[in-house]
């Protein structure tokens, strides 16, 4: 999967949880600060990422996700390791 495909899928996952317009989401967007996702919804998002990409996101990995780009990088790394 290309970075762009992963990004597109992650934006699709994020969109129901954020107040911002999906068009405004970039790799640099902070999920908690810019997109105003609260911590409970972030747990939901991590679960959705696991399901969508067929990966396991461990607690330590989940805690490193600050931006959309972090999520893309994490998925890419997990897929490469699989």
């Amino acid at each position: 999967m290309s970075d762009q495909q992963i990004f597109t899928e992650i934006v699709a996952i994020l969109t129901p949880f954020v107040k911002a317009n999906a068009d405004a989401i970039t790799l640099e967007s902070s999920i908690l600060k810019d997109l105003q996702v609260n911590s409970a919804r972030l747990v939901d998002i991590v679960i959705e990422i696991e399901d969508k990409f067929g990966i396991e996101v461990k607690d330590d990995d989940a805690d490193t996700i600050r931006t959309v780009g972090d999520a893309v990088a994490l998925v890419k790394a997990k897929q490469a390791a699989a």
Partner: peptide, 22 residues
């Protein structure tokens, strides 16, 4: 603080996997 009405409006959070993650 948790707004229980807002939480109830987010049905995903009741799922077993959410519970297991938290």
């Amino acid at each position: 603080v948790v707004d229980l009405r807002a939480a109830a409006a987010a049905p995903r959070s009741g799922r077993p996997r959410f519970l297991a993650r938290v």
